[in-house]
């Protein structure tokens, strides 16, 4: 994991001992569980800022942790994954009720967890989550998008420094090969739980979410239409929806200040 910050690593035995769920932990304060997007866990400047106020607890989808790629074959479907995450979070023994936050694939997973275990989380923050699908609101399948088109899928402004940072490969060919292999595998592992990119029943379950919820969306999201912001908003009772203009699929990076203000206001002290 490329790190802006030093994280502690915790391996938690879950799933009857068949999976060691790896958590990256950083920061001080109340626990905030962060669920990574399809490409795997990367600590970005937004998380680094949040870590000043919260203890960021970030599990990695089995298979995406370095050196443990085959762990994905122990987890068959989304139900398995939700149960396995609940077990891991429970076994960590966090102080107090954690905040749950997720981006894209992680947003879907966060919504699933909050729907399955309504009492488990204090608040829920979703950034451009996938998980719903309906005609007229387009989704682009990132797994079959040619690599040169990925930047424009994720960023409204592909010249944004965050886009440059994400899509500039390491100069060392060995590091570049390792990085690409890890990225492709992470997409394959997370893809197991969403393929084909469709509604796996989340729409039926969202009514179970009781945690106060903030849904943030980039208005110009090319991966999943910002029209889904309203869909989530309508399905989660009492939730708040914020659509950020001039912004693509990753508001925390492309409009970091705005996203941070919204999150801070929602989380309060």
């Amino acid at each position: 994991m490329a790190g802006l910050v030093d994280t502690k690593e915790r391996l938690v035995d879950v799933w009857g001992g068949r999976v060691k769920l790896r958590f990256q932990i950083v920061g001080t304060g109340a626990p905030l569980i962060y669920l990574h997007p399809a490409a795997g866990l990367h600590f970005d400047p937004f998380l680094a800022t949040l870590a000043k106020r919260y203890t960021i607890v970030a599990p990695e989808v089995p298979g995406t942790s370095p050196g443990d790629g085959n762990a994905i074959h122990q987890v068959d479907d989304l139900w398995d994954l939700v149960l396995l995450y609940e077990e891991g979070i429970r076994k960590l023994g966090l102080n107090g009720t954690p905040i749950l936050m997720g981006q894209s694939f992680g947003g879907m997973l966060a919504a699933e967890l909050a729907a399955h275990f309504p009492a488990m989380f204090k608040k829920l923050v979703l950034f451009d989550p996938i998980g719903l699908r309906r005609e007229g609101l387009p989704i682009t399948n990132w797994m079959t998008t040619p690599p040169p088109a990925l930047a424009a899928l994720l960023f409204k402004d592909t010249s944004h420094p965050a886009a440059k940072a994400m899509f500039t490969p390491p100069a060392d060919p060995e590091a570049a090969a390792n990085g690409t292999a890890a990225l492709v595998w992470a997409l394959g592992c997370t893809g197991k739980f969403v393929w084909p990119i469709a509604d796996k029943g989340l729409r039926k379950r969202l009514h179970r979410v009781t945690a106060p919820t903030l849904v943030i969306w980039g208005e110009d999201d090319a991966l999943i239409s910002s029209g889904y912001a309203k869909e989530f908003g309508n399905a989660i009772k009492g939730s708040r929806v914020e659509v950020i203009p001039n912004c693509g699929h990753i508001p925390q990076l492309e409009q970091g200040e705005t996203a941070l203000k919204l999150v801070n206001a929602f989380l309060g002290d």
């Binding site: 790629g69 085959n70 079959t144 690599p147 090969a177 292999a181 595998w185 394959g188 893809g191």
Partner: peptide, 22 residues
């Protein structure tokens, strides 16, 4: 055939990916 539809992430195992990248 579109190349990206012949090599979708997950279809090639991690070991195979490392071999293919090199």
């Amino acid at each position: 055939i579109a190349g990206e539809k012949l090599a979708i992430p997950g279809g090639i195992g991690l070991q195979g990916l490392h071999a293919l990248m090199r």
